[in-house]
Write a protein that binds this DNA or RNA. Structure first.
Lengths: 178, 178
DNA sequence: TTGACCATGTAAGTTGTTACATGATTGG
DNA sequence: CCAATCATGTAACAACTTACATGGTCAA
């Protein structure tokens, strides 16, 4: 799903700045939906030009000025069309799992570091998803998606915790002296 | 992780053609490591030119000729270096989860179709990972990675199975007539 | 004072996808 | 007969990342 559609999607829940959109996606579904600010700002500018969003500039004396975006009716329609067209495939390129597959080639310390980092990220995302109370929302999608994310993330976390010793230890019993 | 490194990684386990490499990654870790043949062939050609792999052309009377690649000693070194340099971050852009988050905007039939497809893919990948016996391998990495993948994939599958009714039903009780 | 947070934007560069090209065999 | 499998390769195009650019506030 391209950044444009993602921006429109976040805006269906209410007005936001580019900065907000990034944080929103990062905090909630950072493990599944990455966006860099270098792709958000151009996307918003394009959406504005096409009339799919409107924008109000807000002067802030102390902070940098911000641009608050709102989705328009045309934007809503375009968003739904894009959603329906989307094939909904799960396309992924996980460096982390590649590192696991080839763990035998990594120095043990590096492997430990990689696992620790991943666990820390998983913990943070799980904590965030559990904390957010899914307040009286009329939408069921976000709740379902959050539950799905939790299922996947806790599965990953528990597996790493339970099995890391095997790969961390197994690896330094030099099996080949290659 | 770029396609080059992925190709080198697969070749550490033995010789293979470009076609083999794609199948290998697809079958084992297709849910986490995508590669298109349009990126594999140029990558192999570049690796060959840099001396990181060697190549033997095999004439096949009935099938198209194939090029069997083998990793060289320089290739092994380059691979390990690339691995260690790799930050090992889990970078993802899942259209599927985006569709879940915005499920309320999808027609019910489309949502059902998306969930069915995802379940079919999950089942296929789980079946493959369970079937492969991880035969007397000296490496622990692939086994650990496969276990990790299984934990994540079964977590996803079970969650969808157990909760899909909620989102499929909840969605058509028109809450807003928007 | 040092880093994190707020806030936006541009541009060069990398990377990868999709589609075009070709073509025989085999199983349903 | 049609679809899938085997097998490689190129090129146009789309997309995103990274780094550059700027700069005030606030907490440790």
């Amino acid at each position: 799903m391209d950044t444009r559609t993602l921006c429109l999607g976040v805006l269906t829940a209410g007005e936001a700045t580019g900065y907000d959109i990034k944080k929103c996606l990062e905090e909630g579904f950072g493990a599944f939906l990455e966006v860099s600010h270098g792709s958000i700002y151009p996307a918003l500018a394009a959406l504005l030009e096409e009339g799919l969003v409107s924008c109000t500039e807000v002067r802030q004396p102390t902070r940098p000025d911000k641009k608050v975006y709102r989705i328009t009716e045309a934007g809503r329609q375009a968003f739904v069309e894009a959603l329906v067209r989307s094939p909904g495939r799960h396309k992924v390129r996980s460096e982390f799992i590649a590192l696991l597959v080839f763990a035998d080639f990594l120095p043990r310390e590096r492997l430990t570091q990689v696992l620790d980092r991943r666990l820390a990220e998983l913990d943070a995302q799980i904590a965030y998803l559990e904390r957010v109370p899914r307040q009286g929302d009329t939408r069921v999608g976000p709740g379902f998606a959050a539950g799905f994310a939790l299922a996947v993330l806790t599965g990953a976390r528990d597996y790493i915790r339970a099995n890391r010793a095997r790969v961390e230890a197994g690896r330094d019993s030099d099996r080949e002296t290659s």
